[in-house]
């Protein structure tokens, strides 16, 4: 039998000459294991903190099974309910649509102001970004509660909540997009003697437009999902019915509502995909010798 010794020579000698490399590799492996161990310990500690008992867990799973069983078959109960649900769903979509669009429109100029390569001001960048962070820090649910207090119950409050929280997210995203714009077209336009505004209008905006659109579409998909729960606090949409039906344990209604939400969201995702492919499409290959 051929031993590895004959093929590779004296292993001990090789190990000695490359001791440093082997040490580094071993240290990296230990580090990786260490990190995994720490995360696992935190996991166990966390579970202990929240009182995770296996008995309780399995009892709960049993109850969950019962609930799932009672969800079949999903049904709205009667035609009247179905119409109510349908109207609420349309309302949800409108909330998401307006909320996303208005936020994008407002966040665009703000994002421009916050972009260092557009304004040249680092102070503006810092202040605006912190404002965006604060707005984003408050969950849209909380915004919904606040706006219900201000404009009353109904979808208006929900729309405002989504719009405001989106301004924070879009503001951050847009400013990052502008700052990451390809500097080459900008240089090209600057070399013709153009002012800052011209550079913005012709070199930056057309190039980043597809990215901006993609981000807006992504948030529209996400907003549709979050708009479905705003109704729980009375801010319009299908969330109200969801909450009520769970409260009264009408599981078939709940299942039907969830199904409606799933179908709608799938539809919005598909629409968003179509819009993406149409406007953004596949960028043609640039010269490989960059």
């Amino acid at each position: 039998m051929r031993s590895s010794r004959s093929t590779f020579g004296d292993l001990a000698l090789i190990a000695a000459t490359h001791a440093a490399t082997i040490r580094t590799a071993e240290r990296k492996a230990r580090q990786g294991l260490g990190v995994a161990l720490v995360l696992l310990t935190l996991l166990v500690l966390g579970l202990w903190w929240i009182d995770f008992g296996f008995l309780r867990f399995f009892a709960g799973t049993g109850r969950l099974g019962q609930i799932l069983w009672r969800m079949l078959p999903p049904s709205p109960g009667n035609a009247e309910h179905f119409l109510l649900y349908w109207h609420a769903l349309v309302e949800t979509l409108c909330i998401a649509f307006i909320g996303t669009l208005v936020a994008a429109a407002i966040a665009l100029p703000l994002g421009l102001l916050a972009a260092r390569n557009v304004t040249g001001s680092a102070a503006l960048h810092f202040t605006l970004r912190r404002c965006f962070d604060i707005i984003r820090g408050i969950d849209r649910f909380v915004w919904a509660l606040i706006f219900v207090r201000v404009v009353g119950l109904g979808p208006f409050a929900g729309t405002l909540a989504i719009a405001i929280s989106n301004i924070g997210s879009f503001g951050k995203l847009f400013s990052e997009t502008f700052e990451g714009a390809d500097p080459k077209p900008v240089e090209g336009v600057v070399s013709t003697g153009a002012h800052r505004l011209h550079t913005l209008r012709f070199a930056i905006l057309p190039e980043v437009a597809p990215v901006l659109l993609s981000q807006i579409l992504y948030y529209f998909e996400s907003d549709t999902r979050s708009a479905t729960v705003l109704g729980i606090v009375g801010a319009g949409g299908i969330g109200l019915y969801l909450y009520e039906e769970i409260r009264v344990l009408e599981w078939t209604h709940v299942a039907f509502l969830i199904l409606m939400i799933l179908v709608t969201v799938a539809g919005i995702d598909a629409l968003s995909g179509i819009i993406r492919r149409w406007f953004i499409g596949k960028r043609p290959q640039r010269d490989p010798r960059r």
Partner: peptide, 24 residues
């Protein structure tokens, strides 16, 4: 897709019914 779309609030509502109130 399913897990992503159903908002965690809805999951939470159902789980509170199944597992009781509390962080679990």
């Amino acid at each position: 897709e399913f897990l992503r779309t159903v908002p965690d609030l809805v999951f939470a509502l159902i789980f509170v019914e199944a597992f009781g109130l509390g962080p679990l």
